[in-house]
Design a protein around this nucleic acid. Structure first.
Lengths: 344, 344
DNA sequence: ACTGTTTCGTGAAACGTTTCACCGAGACGC
DNA sequence: GCGTCTCGGTGAAACGTTTCACGAAACAGT
């Protein structure tokens, strides 16, 4: 163990209470004594023990974040901004990745309580968060990104429906008549909302849904649907995992996005702007979401007891070369696609 | 505050010491009493307070991780695996992103000590980690990914030199005679080692170095070098940031990797396999690195006092379409590039 | 019946802080 | 010269655990 306040006090020739006062700037202390204490701290290399400090004071200045998967760049960005904001407010963050496993999420939710966090920010694996929560909320909880069945919590998410609708309207306007819509799992609120939003805008365009799950490999049904001779002319992926799986699959099958298949995606990532043609995609405002979540949590920690609030942030939809007009005779405005006739 | 052990003890009609024994399975307790205590815990919804527990026991079962930038998918993956491993050993993780700022890194390094972590895993911003460390190591520290000037710590990193050499040899074999080598900053050990590794293999190929820094936009010198009429026929980027900047730049300037410029990269990412032509790249074994770091830290926490160890993990180098043979007349084996004549 | 030994459980002392009531000593008003 | 403040500082009681020495049975061996 390092030196304790006791050691500092002895060396400075004062009482522990005074050391505490100096360190926390609580009571007024004579400048000369402040100096002595500072010097003692310095020379001993004293570091406060937060465990004792927080235990006694009842404060925790610690927040927990639980994300479904830290490997997903979106969630990583979320945590990163959150971590920064938290630090500005003097909070530390315990970060947990549930690895897309509700059981692990539940376990972590339980174990994190032992640290007595001042607040929790949870991006749930699925909608059934309420059931997994230990009875009796241990601390203020803000739910982000995914919508739980349980309305007890503050919520910040994006407006999935309208964004998906915008994509579908765009596809229809480009002349697409039939579109395959793929997502990992409709049990995830975002995916469900996106599908419903797409449906709501499906005028003059036929939509067909397929769930592909989280597995490392695309399920046979998906593969078959995309490689058969009657494969759709357009594909709208409702989340990043699906887009990635589809993009790989298409490359293997030598189906070129843009040329052979209109491709649009939710969850815009850097690579979607780098590939050629670039992908039409919906970008979620992750940073803004993190800011909002932290602000909400801050208010709750501050004691605000207003009824649960729910905020929806607007997504940015960008149309790019992967969804060109569907009239082969007219020259395309598509970005960086070859002019055709490339297949042997 | 929630119920304490006192409350549980009262309800079960035993002493706090017994409750503690039951909860920790330390001393032998009569089965009937165990049951009573369990029931009391259950009905009160008791949760242990780690602050008190760890304070008294002197254990911490808490580890800190400091990464330069959580937004970087490599570091996110590192933290993710680490978090998982830690949890398997019953450790919690305090995660900190230094946002590429040595000052922030230093600040966090200082403040994290207040939690009395059992150990620290640090991926330093630069080589000068030693200077920023508070005097007197507070806990075992394992350095990962980047090599500090200070040899006091256990280290796990990748074999940058050989991997870079492999890339350069490959380029030479493909007929490249002159290659521009770009990296953010030679002050970063990885970048330096890669450059040196490249140099060591530069037989029959001229290498030219440029540092591009971390800014959001590529510096003018880089832009000029890549767009001028005498631009090099090959580019080797020494880190992900640089590759990204270069790739964007090339796209704007309508210079096609593979066709117009051989392009190889360190830090393979998903998108490099998705673009066409796919990028020749060096993949770092992040997961393995995390496993190794955790294992090392585990040994130190266990009390191993052997002299600092240093491990280098092997990178995987994959040659892809972005570095085709440099003989224009012969048909290329390149993957998914058009057959030429595309420029108006 | 007298020791040992084992088993099961308890009281109380830590751990390192914060906080609160209190105290001595000047300063001040009258 | 006497109360009354304020200022600066202190001792000691918490906070919720773990741990340790110790006791009270119960049981076995002589």
């Amino acid at each position: 163990m390092g030196p304790s306040m006791r050691a500092v006090a002895d060396r400075a020739g004062v009482s522990v209470a005074t050391v505490s006062n100096v360190l926390n700037g609580k009571a007024s202390v004579a400048p000369e004594i402040v100096e002595r204490v500072r010097a003692a701290v310095e020379s001993l290399g004293y570091v406060r023990d937060n465990r004792a400090s927080r235990l006694r004071s009842g404060q925790s200045r610690l927040a927990g974040v639980i994300v479904p998967d830290l490997t997903n760049p979106m969630f990583a960005a979320f945590v990163s901004t959150l971590e920064h904001l938290a630090r500005l407010d003097g909070f530390d963050l315990v970060v947990v990745s549930a690895r897309n496993d509700p059981a692990e999420e539940a376990a972590r939710l339980r174990s994190i309580r032992e640290w007595r966090p001042a607040g929790l920010i949870v991006l749930p694996c699925d909608g059934a968060l309420g059931e997994r929560l230990p009875p009796g909320l241990p601390a203020p909880l803000v739910v982000a990104d995914r919508i739980p069945d349980d309305p007890r919590f503050d919520l910040v998410a994006v407006d999935n429906g309208p964004a998906a609708a915008a994509i579908v309207r765009h596809l229809a306007a480009q002349g697409v008549e039939h579109c395959l819509v793929a997502g990992t799992d409709l049990a995830i609120s975002n995916v469900r909302e996106r599908w419903e939003g797409a449906l709501s805008a499906a005028r003059g365009i036929a939509l067909e849904l397929i769930e592909v799950g989280f597995g490392d490999h695309a399920p046979p049904a998906f593969v078959a649907r995309l490689s058969g001779p009657d494969r759709p002319r357009a594909l709208f992926c409702l989340d990043h995992e699906t887009t990635l799986a589809a993009y790989r699959l298409l490359a293997e099958r030598d189906v070129r996005p843009g040329d052979d298949l209109a491709l649009a995606s939710f969850d815009e990532m850097e690579w979607m702007r780098l590939v050629a043609p670039a992908l039409t995609a919906v970008r979620q405002p992750v940073e803004e979401m993190a800011e909002c979540a932290w602000a909400m949590l801050g208010r709750r920690i501050g004691g605000d007891a207003a009824p649960p609030q729910s905020r929806r942030l607007r997504c940015a939809v960008t149309f790019r070369g992967s969804t060109p007009r569907q009239v082969p005779s007219r020259p395309r405005e598509a970005h960086r696609t070859s002019t055709g006739g490339r297949r042997p």
